[in-house]
Design a protein around this nucleic acid. Structure first.
Length: 871
RNA sequence: GGGCAGUUAGCUCAGUUGGUAGAGCGCCACCCUUACAAGGUGGAUGUCAUAGGUUCGACCCCUAUACUGCCCACCA
């Protein structure tokens, strides 16, 4: 032990903690000293691996970007202090639609894959005049270049923010979901799934967004309430006088009608089953069939089946082997139709054609109003009574309609060829893997179960977009010019990443592209989740580095938000199952949402988002982290600037208390006094509880307990009580007080360090860093029994609690008599039980010193705590 | 319609296995006290959503109801 404790001269320190300066300084220091760089340990269990969510880089930051990331960082810092080698990477999610949309708006361009690539194409941000013109058309490759340009700028902004709030990320381990490694691993994933027969392509009706003109997966679909109307339309039975009225909200799909259905027990329609009905206007015969899915109470109890109004239509189409009369095109407009063809066997083809020609080319909304007018014409009737088909006026109703979550118009079912991952048959295995994972909070597990249980479709992974990972597939073209979709040509894994639009498959030459006897490229890209679902495998370099894979997979934790359990969590579990038959991570940490003061979810699109930078400037990173670290996992939190103020106050208090403790000069020595040891016993109990909380990822509990102890036990009580002794006591008493104050501070700083990395590092550097020659508090050991093992601590902290109680009672006496706490008191009579009076004996000198009490007299009375009076 | 949460002081939230209701903010009063006025000391404030039940005893366990939020389904 050195001869004197290392102390500071407070006059050399700034009066107030300069958070901005501290944030700059320590970020540089951590970087320079490689504090957060992952070092490979000998065994897997010495690592703590984090599967960090790749943020969508969107240019505009909001407070949500720091909330859950800070929570993860707190866990990372705790594990690092516990001696784990923390693997804490970060990915940028720049792949996908949000980026495409931003590029379109930012540069005022549109992508057309048929446009040739232009090398050195210069595109600048358009002027106001240029923005009024038509958007500039660019090739797919040029478009992708622009995507990179935009995302790189955004990534810089994000990195600055994440450094500013002190995320202890290993910045060497940064990836982008569109970079070479991610493209390669995504394509490897495709190859592996293909070889394992988990993947197939199929031409079938798929949910389709008519604006983005791409297929979408079940997970990207959301319901929205929409105003609509029931239209009652009269059909008739072919070669019969019998008529009936169906109710539909989609009259424009009448030409796509492929059947009529009612409930098998419905007496009104029983006799019709098995017969052919004629549609009005077009007079196309369609079969009438019975189905349990029809609800006799709804509408008129009998309905028309179209290709395709909704998912049940698709189901009936498959089950009843109905015709395919696709009239909605990929752009959402009605396709041309030939009523003389076999597919539309109209009994009056010429009239049908005339009617339809008034609809062709219109979008859904336009076609609907047009067909409603046509249905008001008597000549539209299919029945012999020639009644107007549209019976009465449409009756308005509200109902849920499926939308692509990013889309503006309802989804249509359009028949296209898409790639799928077979997940339906994996349900049981997926549920089992979900149960092997620990969920925090545990009830989030049921979100996963719920979704997995109700899965209805295999995963459609192909998207008709540009800025994404290309599907690594070519198809042969036979001599007649037909594309052989069932003979897909896949690249070899060492060729990856490939772009089949640019690269040529083996045994073919570029001149054979799109030629009979040649090949063609699959033009599609993957659903972004196809890549995102690989994050724990991307960081572990699956397929590229087997050693690293063993070290880093499965990860320890996956932090994420709850609304993407059905996407990110679900697909990641699916991928790990299919590729590795493993769980992807041991624990899932599900963060809550930030709500605005009106308790609405904060989001950019709602315009109620709070931007973080001015908060960091005003309150400091530590204060913002304090707010984020106060919120428990899975609990939605209203944004409250008050809490930032409290956080800032806490950092100030830590700074000042540290200054006080470390300015005490004293020879080095042991803790010997009972009160000091009793205080340290209380501290040791705090350490136990805090550690228990952190092990459960309950960082908020840890903070709350530590803060309470720090403020009430340490600064307001213990420091105040021993202050006088630290200055005026005997050498041994002084040393004990100061040694105990320093140990207390050292432990508390380390308990605070994961939450408040800047102020704790700042203070740590004054003395403790040199004493234990560990330059950063963030690599110093998390407090444990080791900190106390040299001391003979009492079995309880009762003595300290008694001293605190008596000290408080004397303060109360002063306050109620309007005396300053610092004012001396001549005499007090102290009442307490005999046991308490005996127990307090060794602390009395400190208490009387702290309260400036000159004389006292004890009175033993059977009361709960202490009481004092002036006579 | 199914599922998951939540409802505690004016506000934001804690409340361990059932044992007399907690913190911070805000409010009120007092105090410049040599680390800190960006502070300190003290005070007031609750039918723990409602109704039953179990129990010697319920914020806590059980049942039902109401309200709020979320996830899923409903789409003719």
């Amino acid at each position: 032990m050195p001869r004197e404790f290392l102390s500071i001269d407070p006059s050399q320190l700034p009066k107030h903690f300069d958070s901005k300066e501290s944030e700059r300084k320590w970020d540089k220091f951590w970087q320079a000293n490689k504090i957060y760089e992952y070092e490979t340990p000998d065994t897997r269990d010495q690592s703590f691996v984090i599967d960090t969510p790749p943020p969508t880089v969107s240019g505009s930051l909001h407070i949500g970007h720091v909330f859950s990331y800070t929570q993860t960082d707190i866990v990372a810092r705790y594990q690092r202090m516990c001696g784990k080698k923390v693997f804490y990477p970060l990915g940028w999610d720049d792949n996908g639609l949000p980026t495409e949309r931003r590029v379109q708006n930012y540069f005022h361009v549109r992508c057309d894959p048929k446009t040739p690539y232009q090398r050195d194409l210069k595109i600048e941000i358009p002027t106001k005049e240029q923005e009024k013109e038509h958007p500039r058309i660019v090739s797919r490759e040029n478009f992708i270049e622009l995507c990179h340009r935009v995302t790189q700028e955004d990534e810089k902004t994000f990195e600055e923010l994440y450094r500013r709030i002190g995320l202890s990320i290993d910045w060497r381990e940064v990836y982008a979901t569109i970079d070479d490694r991610c493209r390669k691993i995504s394509q490897l994933s495709f190859l592996d799934l293909f070889q394992k027969n988990h993947i197939y392509n199929l031409e079938s009706p798929t949910m389709w967004d008519v604006d983005f003109q791409t297929a979408v997966a079940q997970a990207e679909v959301e319901d929205r309430q929409q105003g609509s109307a029931f239209h009652n339309i009269q059909f008739c039975i072919q070669n019969s006088k019998r008529t009936f009225v169906i109710a539909t909200t989609r009259p424009e799909l009448l030409p796509a009608c492929i059947g009529v259905a009612a409930h098998p027990d419905d007496e009104r329609y029983k006799e019709l089953f098995g017969r052919q009905a004629l549609t009005p206007l077009f007079r196309v015969p369609v079969p009438v069939f019975s189905t349990e899915l029809a609800d006799p109470e709804k509408g008129t109890g009998i309905l028309m089946v179209c290709s395709f109004g909704d998912a049940t239509d698709v189901q009936w189409w498959k089950e009843k082997k109905l015709n395919l009369r696709q009239i909605i095109g990929k752009n959402g407009r009605l396709l041309p139709v030939d009523f003389k063809s076999e597919l539309w066997p109209s009994t009056t083809p010429e009239e049908a054609q005339k009617f339809y020609d008034q609809l062709a080319g219109k979008n859904v909304r336009q076609a609907r109003s047009a067909i409603v007018e046509l249905l008001r014409l008597p000549e539209a009737s299919a029945a012999q009574d020639a009644k107007v088909p549209l019976q009465g006026e449409p009756q308005p109703l509200e109902h849920a309609v499926k939308f692509f979550e990013k889309g503006d118009r309802p989804l249509e079912f359009v028949t296209t060829r898409q790639w799928f991952v077979g997940l339906l048959k994996q349900k049981e295995a997926l549920l089992k893997k979900g149960d092997e994972i620990k969920w925090f909070p545990d009830f989030m597990r049921s979100r996963y179960r719920n979704w997995t249980d109700n899965l209805q479709f295999d995963w459609c992974i192909s998207r008709q977009r540009y800025f994404g990972v290309p599907i690594p597939v070519w198809y042969p073209i036979d001599e007649e010019g037909r594309t052989l979709y069932d003979k897909a040509i896949l690249p070899e894994s060492r060729q990856l990443p490939v772009d089949p639009m640019i690269h040529t498959p083996r045994n073919f030459s570029e001149s054979q592209r799109d030629q009979p006897g040649g090949f063609c490229a699959d033009p599609d890209v993957f659903d972004t989740w196809f890549t995102s679902s690989l994050t724990p495998m991307i960081t572990a370099k699956w397929g590229l580095d087997d050693t690293r894979m063993k070290q880093l997979f499965p990860a320890d934790i996956r932090p994420q938000a709850h609304e993407i359990i059905r996407t990110w969590a679900f697909y990641t579990i699916a991928k790990s199952l299919l590729h590795e038959n493993s769980i992807p991570w041991k624990s899932a940490l599900i963060s809550g949402w930030i709500l605005d003061p009106d308790r609405k979810k904060m989001s950019k699109s709602k315009g109620n988002a709070v931007t973080p930078i001015h908060l960091l400037d005003e309150y400091s990173s530590d204060a913002v982290r304090y707010w984020a670290g106060s919120a428990r996992l899975g609990v939605d939190t209203a944004f409250d600037e008050q809490i930032l103020k409290i956080g800032k106050r806490l950092t100030t208090k830590i700074y000042n208390a540290s200054k006080f403790v470390l300015m005490q000069r004293s020879p080095a020595g042991p803790v010997t006094q009972n009160l000091d040891l009793s205080f340290l016993k209380a501290l040791q109990q705090l350490v136990e509880n805090a550690t228990k909380s952190m092990e459960q990822f309950n960082y908020a509990q840890c903070l709350q307990d530590t803060e309470k102890f720090f403020w009430s036990n340490f600064t307001d009580t213990y420091i105040e009580i021993v202050k006088v002794r630290a200055k005026e006591g005997t050498e041994e008493q002084k040393i004990s007080a100061i040694a105990s104050l320093r140990l207390g501070l050292s432990v508390l700083l380390r308990l605070f360090a994961p939450h408040l990395p800047f102020v704790t590092e700042e203070v740590w550097a004054w003395a403790f860093a040199k004493e234990i020659s560990e330059p950063s508090i963030h690599k110093s050991p998390w407090p444990s029994t080791k900190d106390f093992e040299a001391l003979s601590l009492p079995t309880s902290s009762e003595e300290f609690e008694n001293a605190a109680a008596l000290y408080s009672v004397i303060n109360k006496f002063k306050t109620t008599h309007n005396i300053s706490i610092g004012a001396p008191v001549e005499f007090l009579k102290i009442s307490a039980s005999k046991e308490k009076i005996d127990a307090i004996a060794s602390s009395l000198q400190d208490i009387f010193g702290a309260t400036k009490l000159s004389r006292h007299e004890f009175q033993a009375r059977p009361i709960e705590g202490f009481e004092v009076s002036a006579n």
